[in-house]
Design a protein around this nucleic acid. Structure first.
Lengths: 355, 355
DNA sequence: AGTGCAATTGACAGCGCTTTCATTTGAAAC
DNA sequence: GTTTCAAATGAAAGCGCTGTCAATTGCACT
């Protein structure tokens, strides 16, 4: 039963024997319509299967109830939680989130921003701080709240919540150093600007501690996978058999490194310590469980959404703090814990919080 | 520099000294405007940072360039690839995909359908075939192409591409049976209707082969995780220490089962065979690599998008086949391969295709 | 110069809704 | 039975754009 024409406000109005305005009010501001008419209208709505045309509504009211969100990836377990947190906040406020996945491409991001702005979103939430000049310009011109998340910058477009990935990378190395390791490798997928920051932090720490990273870094331009983690670590192992520890720019690579060790009969943590990044769910489940640097991705998404909501629906005032550093936490687990600390059969976590 | 008012078509027209229609044409149908004017208009557009109001455009032209997509989850590595495939097809046609994540809730799905239809999408792509009556009604009334994916039904709303999860579950058991296993366990997360189908297939196979599943099934109402895989399989192991094989409703649970085995010193595949579902990337990377039943998720997303595109932009004709069974493939790897088949150090895959 | 025709350009209406303001209604108060 | 005022309803305009059709222009050809 394909209708030629979907029911409109006027159709409902005719059916209920009232004027279109009244129908509009019955839907948007029920308290302004008498009970009698409201019921008649509700019936008409139901019997016609009327669904308001959001485009027309938004055009007329200057309220789109849309917020644009741009993420660099979805294959990476990180952004699911983050996105879900954002959606949870907005769905309660009847705001539709328009998500675009730009696959770590600044160019695609620019295009996505342009497209999204065409929908007149009431705010934009972005990942990272590396937008192109053009992107920044468009966002500024749009005159809406903009939140840059998951990273920090000295020069935010508007609001900013995140953490220093450079510091996190530094801390990971510092932690491994504190366990007595000196030959500390690093696996990383460039392409993700935040991974690059972690790499920079790794390098800074190695330099600071007077350790050489020669031959200890393996990187790939591709999206990271577990398989790639194996391959990258295999490279390092072949080059530097004496490596004592490895810090991976994310947990997929770390899990790959762990598997490569299993394959080669390298004992973790006795022969080699592994530290991942993001603290995805599987870190606590592997054997041994993986030590990982955790970030507050859910908290960041939530904060971004809540602040946007407050600005566009609330008092309209900017929040007290326009920039928030959520820090990071090293979840110390079996993959790096010195033997005497390890409790057999337990997958306990010892957390070191840094913010 | 927050503008009071974003530039409109008229603003551009004034600036370029032409009528608004001409600007509209210069943007939508450049070939209909003389080169001279086109340049003047382009300049005006650029200098004003003009971005067409998509809402107004869609309202006037009855072309929204929106396709609604509803997924039950994003945390599950399955839907990333699927979504990406859909987006890839549509982005080339300048169609914006409106994604909603309904977290395996039919109620949320119904609400999402209602909301999305308010945007007048030109088509809808859904996961699964278990929509509520109300949802089906709304979709039918909308008079747009609807694709149900990743599962099959005798009574599709419109187009349908997927596979029989019951058959896939049956095949997994049949495969393990062919290796000589009889005590075959099953781990599953109900909540996902397709997992339930796989469970049904498992049960059907066990019955058919005259095998008892008593005490061999562990299920959870929660979203599956690796951790949960460990816990569920631990339950089974504690109950039935003699279990010879386990078929898991997805790869996360399978990886968890593998870790649980590692923890307990159970050798895989010598002491126990493991089969997962979905063939996610990490399956080929673990030690031993995980045998998994793979589905054509990318292909399904692509087919759905391409057919929609053909219908709404092309000849308008329905495709030849309104229902497609993409089948499934058992990727046989080390976690189930009999010792004499296993090639040390190789992570080769032997595929058995069923469609 | 005049005719014919295609290529450009513009005027106008309207997409489906909300906002604003005017009108009507009803019930309380005189 | 008026008057008064709030509550309920409606009429008209317009959000920013595009489709349709009419008007204009340019140019080749007589």
């Amino acid at each position: 039963m394909t209708r030629k024409h979907r029911a409109t406000l006027s159709d409902v109005a005719s059916k209920a024997g009232v004027s279109p305005v009244t129908v509009s009010r019955a839907i948007r501001h029920p308290e302004m319509v008498s009970k009698k008419l409201r019921e008649r209208i509700d019936n008409a709505v139901r019997s016609l299967g009327y669904i308001p045309n959001h485009l027309a509504s938004a055009l007329a009211s200057h309220r789109t109830n849309i917020v644009g969100v741009i993420v660099p990836s979805l294959t990476n377990g990180v952004f699911d939680d983050y996105l879900a947190a954002i959606q949870d906040v907005f769905s309660l406020a009847n705001i539709q989130v328009l998500v675009t996945n730009v696959r770590y491409s600044a160019e695609k991001e620019e295009k996505a921003i342009n497209t999204l702005l065409g929908y007149h979103p009431e705010a934009m939430i972005l990942v990272g701080v590396d937008q192109t000049d053009n992107s920044r310009q468009m966002l500024t011109n749009a005159g809406i709240p903009v939140v840059q998340t998951l990273d920090l910058t000295d020069n935010p477009i508007d609001l900013n919540i995140g953490l220093s990935h450079d510091d996190a990378g530094y801390a990971a190395v510092e932690y491994l150093r504190s366990l007595g390791h000196e030959s500390i490798a690093h696996l990383t997928a460039r392409g993700d600007p935040r991974s690059q920051q972690r790499h920079a932090g790794y390098q800074r720490a190695m330099d600071t501690f007077g350790l050489s990273s020669e031959g200890l870094v393996a990187l790939t331009p591709r999206i990271s996978t577990v398989q790639l983690g194996r391959r990258l670590f295999a490279e390092v192992l072949d080059r530097q058999p004496g490596v004592e520890a490895v810090f991976c720019c994310n947990d997929d690579l770390a899990l790959g490194a762990l598997f490569e060790c299993q394959q080669r009969g390298i004992r973790v943590p006795e022969d080699l310590a592994i530290v991942g990044f993001n603290d995805l769910e599987f870190c606590a489940a592997s054997v041994p469980p993986l030590t990982s640097v955790g970030t507050e991705r859910i908290q960041m998404g939530k904060w971004a959404a809540q602040n946007v909501l407050e600005i566009i629906r609330g008092s309209g005032q900017r929040p007290d703090k326009c920039q928030v550093n959520t820090g990071f936490t090293i979840h110390e687990r079996g993959s790096s814990m010195p033997a005497h600390k390890t409790v057999h059969g337990t997958r306990g976590t010892k957390a070191r919080v840094v913010s």
